[in-house]
């Protein structure tokens, strides 16, 4: 345990260092966007946060499938941890997007397909966490949550498609070719930094989930 905890500490320090370097480069080194000015620098946290949210929910999906096949609570703990981190970063994505939207689009919120899908995704995974909190038995909780984790993830592309049809006035996402290489490299660096933050948070949260599980078991045993 101590070696694992030590590894987590090392990864945590690395995550912090990468985040600080990435933020410094994003804020002070890279030139600002010619059209939008400094506000575009939000991209260096907004896009990585969104990436992390999607990746978290993909991990929830994978772990849910794995749990239903093997029925090993280990996978459930990973899924739960990833879902919590995903929800936090989805909220962060929406908040940062809102701050970016106000000066550039003039509104805090617009029914853009990606924005709308992200909000619906948040609702799906809040439901995932809610169903967990209402179940007492660990195996049932894991099974129900895994089902919601699979269906919720399968639904995200359908939601996205339907919202695109609903709001046909969406703007295409910027492709790597349309942005300058410095901006792209800074963004990539920040994506990597956020991924390391994810690994660190996951290690801590999974460990906590394991302890919570043991505690629950002892409470049940001793009444």
């Amino acid at each position: 345990m101590t070696s694992k905890s030590g590894l987590a500490n090392v990864i945590g320090i690395a995550a912090l260092a990468l985040f600080l370097v990435g933020s410094f480069v994003g804020l002070f080194v890279v030139p600002a966007d010619g059209m939008q000015g400094d506000i575009q620098r939000l991209m260096y946290v907004h896009v990585p946060a969104a990436w992390l949210a999607f990746m978290s929910f993909f991990v929830v999906f994978l772990m849910s499938v794995l749990y239903l096949i093997q029925r090993d609570l280990r996978w459930d703990r990973v899924a739960q941890s990833s879902a919590e981190i995903g929800v936090v970063f989805t909220v962060l994505t929406l908040a940062l997007g809102s701050m970016w939207g106000k000066p550039t689009w003039g509104v805090w919120w617009t029914w853009d397909p990606r924005l709308t899908t992200t909000a619906i995704m948040l609702a799906i995974y809040v439901g995932y966490l809610a169903i967990r909190s209402f179940a007492d038995d660990p195996d049932k909780r894991a099974r129900w949550a895994a089902i919601v984790g699979i269906i919720g993830f399968a639904n995200v592309p359908i939601v996205y498609l339907s919202v695109i049809w609903w709001r046909t006035l969406h703007q295409p996402p910027s492709s790597p070719r349309s942005v300058s290489p410095e901006i792209l490299w800074t963004l990539m660096f920040n994506l990597a930094a956020f991924t390391v933050i994810y690994v660190y948070l996951m290690m801590r949260r999974i460990r906590l989930a394991k302890l919570e599980g043991e505690l629950e078991q002892r409470m049940a045993y001793h009444g």
Binding site: I120, A123, I124, V126, G127, A130, I131, F134, A135, W144, V148, I151, G152, N155, I158, V159, L161, S162, V163, W165, W166
Partner: peptide, 21 residues
């Protein structure tokens, strides 16, 4: 589930959005 009256719409409505649209 405990509180199933709350949980059913909470799970159902986000999943239904494509169908509702």
């Amino acid at each position: 589930l405990r509180a199933r009256e709350v949980m059913l719409p909470l799970l159902l409505f986000p999943a239904l959005i494509p169908m509702l649209l």
